[in-house]
Computed example of a mutant assay.
Amino acid sequence: MSDQSFTFYRPSPQLAPYIRYYWALRLPRFSSTLTFPIGCPQIIFHRKTSFFIPELSASQPRFTISGQVNFPSHILSEGELDTIVAVFHPHALSMFIGPVLHDFYNMEISGHDLSDRHLDSLAYDVGNCEDIPTCVSMIDSRLLARLKSMQSRKYSAMKALNFRRLDAALKQIMNTHDTRMDKLCELSCLGKKQFE
């Protein structure tokens, strides 16, 4: 593999409703670029140097949970980058980490702050994995196992139902940008206050 690469990977078919894609970036030197918000939460694994985000006046933790961000930001790296990112559909991350998604709006936190031993173990294993394709495959299989585990629990049945409801409304918004609120509420089988 060359010293510099940017690659996209597809999730397994079972995870496609939850994960849009994975991307991996490897840079051997200092870099700086402007990014634009994609409206999707992410789990970020920095295997070497982390990004510094001037707008947040902070470096990302090596294991970062990033919520939906609505502002462009600069990312800086002062050394070698080897980063893998799982990009989730806007409403899907909570199926994997538990907290309500709006808790992370315009925020980034250390994934270790969740005190989730399965995610901590995943971050450790990604950090010690030999090559990026193997890492992405491992992330995908571990997230799939977590999804199956969450779906087998009784409380997740309601979460899965809410996911399907929100998914229908989001697809409508993507296809027809000027959909009225009452139509979105009807699609998601929720009252206006619940939907908001």
Rank of each mutant, 00 (worst) to 15 (best):
Y105D: 11
C135E: 12
P72H: 08
C129P: 07
L143Q: 03
I109V: 09
D125C: 12
L114Q: 06
S156A: 11
P17Q: 02
M95G: 04
F52W: 05
K192A: 03
Y21A: 10
P28N: 04
F195A: 08
L190I: 07
L170E: 14
Q68R: 15
Q60H: 10
V85F: 06
Q151M: 07
L34M: 14
E55Q: 05
I109A: 03
F8P: 01
L119R: 09
P13S: 06
L184H: 04
L122P: 07
Q60T: 09
R142Y: 00
A24V: 03
A86E: 07
F30I: 11
C40T: 10
M95I: 03
Q14A: 14
R153E: 13
P90E: 02
L147D: 04
S2K: 05
E130L: 05
H102E: 14
K48D: 12
T83H: 04
L170H: 14
S59G: 13
D182V: 15
R117T: 14
T83A: 03
L161W: 09
L81G: 03
V126G: 09
T35Y: 03
I53L: 03
F96T: 13
F6M: 11
D125W: 10
N106I: 04
N162V: 06
D140G: 00
S66Y: 02
E196V: 08
P72D: 10
T49C: 08
Y9I: 08
L147N: 04
H118E: 15
M181S: 10
N162D: 11
D167E: 11
S149E: 10
P17F: 01
F52Y: 15
G127L: 02
E130Y: 02
T33N: 10
Q42S: 12
L15I: 01
G111I: 10
S121L: 15
Y155F: 14
T134G: 13
Q42D: 08
P37L: 00
K171C: 02
T83R: 07
L190G: 06
L27I: 13
S115D: 14
F63Y: 07
K48A: 15
